[in-house]
Design a protein around this nucleic acid. Structure first.
Lengths: 368, 368
DNA sequence: CATTCTCATGTAATCGATTACATTAATAAT
DNA sequence: ATTATTAATGTAATCGATTACATGAGAATG
């Protein structure tokens, strides 16, 4: 009813409420009395414009309720303004904080975050290349180190390999940028803690065999065990896969041993929960009968019974740093390509709670 | 090394690896000896073409390694081929399975799934409208019922309100499509189970005050309590917010009561964990001293100590159904708009584990 | 005062796919 | 044989923003 609000031109018949008002950059230009180029500049390079024109453009933008059409921009600039995060398993609460960190950092740069679960992806490589060549994404943060070499090869072949960074996990073969916790040190801390409590017979439930984290944590564990000259037994290294269920079966294995460990260092908190749950179901008390240390420090660790002693990863930092690293790859500024390849390592901490205690009948003196 | 693996076609001179090969639809057309229109049709309406042309087009597509440029398509068709999921808190493992369900269903329709955490979003409404008008998304699945009315108003004003479906949570005020569990029934089942074990004094830790789930579950709880003529006490209804931490404080509140309940029905598994953790820390044994029931049945429920008796929601079904519903809104086929507004209700089950048992000194006979 | 240089802005081509409309060939109807 | 009809394909406009290049107005220089 008022005088100057309408742009009736394209009332596409239907008459109803479907006011598909399509404010284009041209409309803004018209209102502001400038060219579309000027409007575009006001948005991307405001410093090129007179303060006067700039103001009038922004006024027009506000007046019209204009929003950039991302599809058009993407088509022209070949930049999607979005990145994709590949998660091995969204069901694992471990990843949430990382995602939050990624979101936080990329949000500052007006980038959207797509998330895909590799479990749902028959062919992650195909999928990714597709998205890249589609200009649907500008980069990838991969939290899954188990991408087969063939898929990585696809990336290289299609020239998108340099827009991928790994976080948490990584692939040793290929020199790709990554952000990771100090897993070896974490494992050392765990074993040292148990040793200081007086434990000597320490078991370890690993992750899946081909996983880089499995390797790093096992290695740290073995190193520290050797350094402290602790007894060694093959059966004390139990294969797991980071899952609750594998904690359960590890517990079963351990319960069957004739020479039982007095403490177990688990490769993840989930494993520790599965383990403790099963141990308790079989009448063992944690930590009285057996101590348990986890890895990750997910939120629940503090709320388990008993509260879990574990190695804290700074998941949020992992997320933000991965995002920053990716931004460097996508829109390089400071770093040189070579510098990006050195893994960014985030420190870890031991968080002592209630799942660890001195072993039952042990003289807690010793070396100290 | 083998003979037939190579596709050397477009070695565009440069020799190096940066093969920015930009296969456009025009290139395919050229190779196939047809027009771009025909190629486009081969992709979207293959039945319009002769088998012969169709074949040659697909051959050309394969030969060139062509991939549709989504940005261009989106620009032209105004369809993004992507939907956005609004999650209240990615850290809550409850949501993962729902996301998996959504992914599964939408993947079948070549739709990407964007995920955003409302916690990181200052202004969800603004954000969404932006994405819609940007043609970055075709629809939204919202898992967060706490969107303020003002934001919903924005949706309506911008004509995007009919491309939103709620899942799990919903907004009562606005008639928007939704998929939800039978929360009232779930609460009834929980109370009934406790009653059958012999409990009479039953407490309830609710969700946050303004939440629809809080309301539904509390209502179901109150209904069943009334039906069974159980004693009523205001202090037995404790305000929580679905979080671990709120379970902890609820426990503190309950520990201070002079007339203590013998069982607690928690509005979420997380609350139950927080509660049990704190009760045990204060020397109470679950279920011997007090029984606890949760709601959700997240994976960890079976691995807690004691394993949690809880109400199972079929999260995956919630996800797939929400996705299907949204697809109906976005590309309507069978249903009429009005039919979409009736909430889709997914059934729930009681899963009995070890956190519930008859109360300490109770005659387990009674009514039955 | 003429000339060169800057700076702000405009003009128009372009990104790649879709699709209304036009054209042609093939078939059916008169 | 001629016209009407249908089916298959082509032509070219279009979606909306960006940006190389062009233009023109002042400022600076000689």
């Amino acid at each position: 009813m008022s005088t100057r609000n309408v742009r009736k031109d394209k009332t596409n018949g239907s008459g109803t409420s479907v006011l598909q008002k399509n404010v284009r950059i041209r409309d803004v230009a018209e209102v502001a009395g400038v060219s579309t180029a000027t409007v575009s500049r006001a948005l991307s390079n405001p410093e090129l414009l007179t303060e006067a024109t700039r103001d009038s453009v922004f006024a027009a933008i506000r007046a019209t309720g204009y929003r950039v059409n991302k599809a058009a921009r993407t088509l022209r600039t070949r930049q999607a303004g979005a990145i994709l995060v590949l998660v091995p398993n969204l069901g694992n609460p471990f990843f949430s904080q990382i995602l939050a960190g990624i979101n936080e950092r990329l949000g500052e740069h007006d980038m959207s975050v797509l998330i895909a679960d590799t479990a749902n992806l028959a062919t992650a490589g195909e999928f990714l290349v597709d998205h890249f060549l589609n200009s649907q994404i500008d980069g990838v943060i991969c939290l899954d180190g188990s991408l087969p070499e063939t898929e990585l090869e696809q990336f290289r072949k299609n020239g998108v390999a340099d827009k991928i960074v790994f976080a948490c996990e990584w692939v040793h073969s290929a020199g790709l940028p990554s952000v990771r916790s100090d897993n070896v040190e974490g494992a050392r801390l765990a074993v040292r803690h148990l040793h200081e409590l007086g434990h000597r017979k320490i078991a370890h439930v690993t992750g899946p065999g081909d996983n880089v984290l499995t390797h790093a944590r096992r290695q740290g564990m073995l190193e520290e065990r050797a350094r402290l000259q602790l007894p060694v037994r093959d059966e004390w290294i139990v294969r797991g896969d980071f899952s609750l269920e594998s904690g359960r079966s590890a517990a079963m294995r351990i319960l069957e041993l004739d020479e039982k460990p007095t403490a177990v260092f688990c490769a993840s908190d989930q494993v520790a929960f599965g383990l403790m749950s099963t141990l308790e179901a079989h009448g063992l008390i944690v930590p009285d009968d057996i101590s348990v240390v986890g890895f990750d420090d997910i939120e629940l660790a503090d709320f388990y019974v008993p509260a879990l002693t574990t190695i804290r990863q700074d998941r949020r930092a992992l997320g933000t740093k991965a995002a920053s690293l990716l931004l460097e790859c996508v829109e390089p500024k400071t770093t040189r390509p070579a510098d990006r390849l050195k893994p960014v390592v985030v420190g870890v901490d031991l968080v002592v709670r209630e799942s660890t205690a001195p072993p039952k009948n042990a003289s807690v003196s010793a070396t100290g």
